[in-house]
């Protein structure tokens, strides 16, 4: 499927999808979304582990105050996923420890 661009608009032509990568994995996300929203829409809800307890963290305050959602964007470390808008070709890296690929779910 091709992604049409609107050549007549004076603003940035808004493509139907934006292609980014998260930890090397390609993702197609919606233009105009925050990195945090784009990941959440893909059911990725945590992308950072805390220093002491290695607890998973993702979005919390959603407005740039709590710094829980930090990740690396195009090589720039400690960016707030709730504030950075996705851009074509963006490389997003989390800092969660490797997760085993198959593990049965269960109540903690």
């Amino acid at each position: 499927m091709s992604t049409p661009t609107r050549g007549t608009a004076e603003a940035t032509p808004s493509a139907a999808v934006v292609r980014v990568s998260f930890d090397g994995r390609p993702l197609e996300v919606a233009p105009g979304q925050s990195v945090g929203a784009a990941l959440t829409a893909q059911s990725i809800t945590a992308w950072r582990a805390t220093r002491k307890g290695e607890r998973p963290r993702g979005l919390f305050c959603g407005i740039g105050v709590c710094f829980d959602c930090l990740l690396t964007v195009d090589g720039a470390a400690n960016q707030r996923a709730c504030l950075v808008e996705v851009r074509e070709g963006m490389e997003i890296e989390g800092s969660c420890p490797e997760v085993p690929s198959e593990e049965p779910g269960g109540r903690a």
Binding site: A30, G32, Q33, S34, G36, A37, T40, T45, A46, P56, R57, G58, L59, F60, C61, G62, I63, C66, C82
Partner: peptide, 16 residues
């Protein structure tokens, strides 16, 4: 993960 500030949910919806 999945716990958010109420205002954070509001901001998420409005912005995205």
């Amino acid at each position: 993960p999945g716990v958010m500030a109420a205002g954070g949910i509001q901001a998420f919806i409005k912005a995205n």
